[in-house]
């Protein structure tokens, strides 16, 4: 059993400050994860040199990998800190090497490991990821959705807007406006719903605007890092076909 956990953390005091690194060693316990390790540091923020420092700031909430808050780079991989079990990391990499924690790099840093993912919510606005109902009131039952459709799109509805796919995608970068894989998949989810389907076109149209689906370079990293195993590449391919036939129809009708 290892005696301690060694962490190397990239820190930044505020949005425009210069990042720096600090290292911490904390006592090992079985069944810990990266969040519980950060909690130990928070309670007693002493650097490896013995210097007392400000506690590390990060975001977390549910601690069961459904809220998406605690996404960060752990040994270079974007993933949720709560479900990154220390024992598993040690099994893969050994306990000698430090575990490296960094904030997601594709989003502005707020402080330390905490970033601002507002752009992802804005992207959901861009693709109009909602169903324009008449109102929230009750007018009885009526919808039928096949089991097959439900089973096909339910996995997309588990997307936590965590940002892992954005982080991994080479086409999401400072120069591009690419809305990223998760928002494209959401369009498939909403278009599959019987009422959502009535408003298909507004979302397809959104997908061909600047930063839309054509900016996907098919690197397929998104699917590999999605913590919910959403088949993002398949959904993007499907939406690509939909968008193409929509564009073609637009072209024919307008002529």
């Amino acid at each position: 059993m290892p005696a301690y956990i060694h962490l190397k953390i990239k820190r930044q005091n505020e949005p425009n400050a210069k990042p720096y690194w600090q290292e911490f060693k904390i006592p090992y316990n079985p069944n810990m994860n990266v969040v519980s390790a950060l909690m130990v540091i928070r309670q007693n923020p002493v650097e490896i040199s013995g210097k007392v420092v400000d506690p590390v700031v990060w975001e977390c909430n549910c601690l069961e990998e459904v809220c998406g808050a605690c996404t960060m780079l752990i040994n270079g991989m974007p993933r949720q800190a709560c479900s990154a079990l220390i024992d598993n990391i040690f099994k893969e990499k050994g306990s000698e090497k430090p575990i490296i924690l960094e904030p997601l790099s594709k989003f502005p840093t707020i402080r330390d490991l905490m970033v601002d993912r507002k752009v992802m919510f804005d992207n959901l606005k861009k693709v109009k990821a909602w169903i324009p109902v008449d109102g929230t009131w009750d007018y009885g039952s009526g919808l039928r959705i096949s089991e097959e459709t439900q089973q096909l799109v339910y996995p997309i509805s588990r997307c936590m807007t965590c940002g892992a796919c954005m982080e991994a995608c080479p086409n999401v970068n400072k120069k591009s406006k690419f809305i990223g894989p998760s928002s494209i998949a959401q369009v498939r989810l909403l278009n599959a719903h019987p009422i959502g389907a009535m408003h298909k076109k507004m979302r397809l149209k959104a997908l061909i605007q600047k930063g839309g689906i054509h900016e996907c370079g098919n690197a397929q990293n998104c699917k590999r890092v999605c913590p919910k195993n959403i088949n993002l590449t398949r959904h993007i391919a499907y939406m690509n076909r939909e968008v193409n036939s929509y564009a073609l129809r637009q072209f024919l009708e307008e002529d």
Binding site: I131, T136, W137, Y139, G140, L143, S157, L190, H193
Partner: peptide
């Protein structure tokens, strides 16, 4: 039923 109309994949 309203939640269903708004899109919940029950």
């Amino acid at each position: 039923y309203a939640m269903e109309r708004m899109g919940v994949m029950f």
